[in-house]
């Protein structure tokens, strides 16, 4: 049975802040930091947005583009490291908000920034085995870096949702491969507000090692090379890492252009590869092949090989906004408003 993406939808909050504005507060040359990271600005959730509202908006956009009955959804998984509740699944509210409840299985996934792609893999298995007709996989986050920390320049918000099924597939999920080790590059202990990271340790032994091994492992198993793909998307904690890793795997700037959103919206964590993939599907044509590698600290990578089908020509893409359209509604904030929006100001009330 062929399993693949039947529909998809995205959501990115409207507010933005520049590295320059963040640097001003901490006495740093933010402009230079942004240039080094290849981040022009990052998205910020409004005070009434969280991983649940972003997941719901993305999932509703996904449902608008297809004629699948929500009652045929047998599984829904939300991958995030910023679930609003520590106990009480994000997915319960998302399932209710797209009218998929109550006859389905729901769970929240966690694997740093690759929880959303882990959800795609789980749905592939459930659909492929015939256990469910359709599965929904969502990757979404409203991530925070500690004030003044290097992560504050990049940690942002956004997410995308994918309907996985076996009928009317717009892109087949041809193969997936994961690479996982015990690597303490980035973590957050239970009860702590902000994550911590191993500084320079987050680069070579963490991101690059896992993305390269995930990517090469998938190429070996599919007998493909970078030349076989039209598009490639990689986890993007900034603009620099995915650009470098793409080159190391043999991909050109043209292949990664459509899916590289970090320069415009920052690091959306679990939303990063899902949003990049959504932006690629916004413009993909039948026969295009897509290569995707997500990375999650801790650490592991999920690699996917996909092929866009003829079905995409009759797919109602225009019933929901494209990623480009979504990220064109922008309002820049100063640091004080950003701090208020993110709850970084201690209020006098109880």
């Amino acid at each position: 049975m062929k399993v693949g993406i039947v529909s998809y939808g995205a959501c990115v909050p409207r507010y933005r802040i520049t590295p320059e504005e963040i640097g001003k507060v901490w006495g740093a040359d933010g402009k230079a930091v942004g240039k080094g990271l290849m981040i022009n600005c990052k998205s910020i959730p409004a005070p009434d947005e969280d991983t649940i509202t972003i997941s719901v908006e993305a999932a509703r956009n996904m449902m608008k583009r297809c004629d699948v009955s929500p009652k045929d959804i047998g599984a829904l998984y939300v991958g995030s490291e910023s679930h609003p509740y520590a106990v009480k699944p994000t997915g319960t509210i998302v399932a209710e908000a797209i009218e998929a409840a109550p006859h389905l299985t729901v769970a929240d996934f966690e694997f740093a920034c690759k929880a959303g792609t882990a959800a795609i893999q789980t749905c592939m298995g459930l659909v492929g085995s015939g256990m469910v007709k359709y599965g929904v996989a969502i990757g979404a986050d409203t991530s925070q870096g500690a004030p003044g920390d290097a992560l504050e320049y990049s940690a942002s918000a956004g997410g995308a949702a994918f309907l996985i099924g076996s009928e009317k597939i717009i892109a087949t999920l041809d193969r997936t491969y994961s690479y996982t080790t015990d690597t303490p590059d980035f973590w957050r202990r239970e009860g702590q507000i902000y994550p911590r990271h191993g500084g320079r340790f987050t680069g070579e032994p963490a991101y690059f090692k896992h993305v390269l091994n995930g990517g090469r492992g998938l190429m070996e198993r599919t007998g493909t090379t970078a030349k076989d793909y039209t598009y490639a998307v990689f986890h993007q904690p900034n603009g620099k890492f995915p650009t470098r890793v793409a080159k190391q795997l043999g991909f050109s700037d043209t292949q990664i252009k459509a899916g590289l959103l970090a320069p415009l919206i920052g690091n959306t964590y679990s939303g990063a590869v899902p949003l990049g993939l959504a932006a690629i599907l916004d413009e993909a044509k039948p026969g295009d092949r897509i290569f995707a590698v997500a990375y999650g600290s801790g650490a592991g990578s999920d690699a996917f090989a996909m092929t866009v089908t003829d079905e995409i020509d009759s797919y109602a893409r225009d019933r929901a906004p494209t990623v480009k359209e979504i990220i064109s509604n922008v309002k820049f904030l100063d640091y004080a408003t950003y701090a208020k929006f993110r709850g970084m100001i201690v209020l006098g009330r109880e």
Partner: peptide, 20 residues
């Protein structure tokens, strides 16, 4: 209409979602 947070019952209470 979209779904957003309407209110929450303090930092440890239930979060209420609804339309805006």
């Amino acid at each position: 209409a979209v779904l957003r947070k309407l209110s929450e019952e303090g930092p440890s209470g239930v979060i209420h979602y609804g339309y805006k």
